[in-house]
Design a protein around this nucleic acid. Structure first.
Length: 223
DNA sequence: TGCCAGGCCGGGT
DNA sequence: ACCCGGCATGGC
């Protein structure tokens, strides 16, 4: 698509292994990637950046290691809960986990404590290569600012909007999400009434201030 | 100094 | 089905 052609591949989600993607998805919840990355580095330096290492850790030890990411109590529980579930249902094998049908896997992951829709979709897209768009805060803010969604549009609606307008392709979703985050960080943060110089403007049309009602999608919602 | 960051949960209405 | 407070560290 033109946007990707213009801004180029972002080569995003700096994580090497699928486990790192999963941990990153949890650790970056309402947190900068910078702080989430610190937590990952600490796990690596402690020699625990693998499933077996995580199983060995006490709750308090895990909390200490991931402390820089904030919300360490909840995130430690989420990580331990995920590993326990993986062991029980897939013999501790990420490969087996990702071999299950994507929609079934999504449903199962959403039932885990501490894994919400955005975290789960990040796992499915960036670790599993499945075409689920990660409709994060930047996505919703940008779509709202350009009048495509209401300011308070829920996650599912924002995701559905993207799913309707982009080819259902993990590669495309990956690039577009990366791009929205980059643009969002620069031009569409909270508290900024305008996004002066926003490179999306020429593609998405005129922007408008946040905080006012926007056009709501009239298209049908997913089943 | 206060507000913000790539959310999610649980209890209340 | 929403609404809201709590969760916590680090940067500007």
């Amino acid at each position: 698509m033109r946007l990707v052609a213009k801004l180029g591949p972002q080569g995003w989600w700096p994580a090497k292994t699928r486990l790192e993607v999963i941990l990153g998805a949890i650790l970056t919840q309402n947190t900068t990637w910078r702080n989430a990355a610190r937590a990952i580095v600490r796990l690596f330096e402690a020699g625990k950046l693998h499933l077996r290492g995580l199983r060995e850790l006490e709750e308090s030890q895990l909390q200490s290691l991931i402390r820089p990411a904030g919300f360490f109590g909840q995130k430690a529980r989420a990580i331990r809960g995920f590993v326990a579930w993986l062991d029980q249902t897939h013999g501790g094998s990420l490969r087996r986990m990702f071999a299950t049908p994507p929609l079934d896997l999504r449903r199962a992951l959403l039932e885990l404590r501490g894994l919400g829709p955005e975290t789960v979709d990040a796992i499915l897209l960036y670790a599993g290569g499945q075409p689920f768009f990660v409709a994060d805060a930047y996505t919703r803010r940008i779509l709202a600012r350009h009048g495509m969604l209401a300011d308070d549009a829920p996650y599912a609606e924002a995701q559905h909007y993207i799913h309707r307008h982009l080819r259902r392709d993990a590669k495309v979703y990956n690039e577009f999400h990366a791009l929205l985050v980059e643009v969002g960080k620069g031009y569409c943060r909270r508290g900024q009434p305008h996004c002066e110089g926003c490179p999306l403007q020429e593609f998405l049309g005129p922007r408008r201030p946040l905080g006012r009602s926007a056009a709501r999608s009239t298209d049908p919602q997913p089943a």
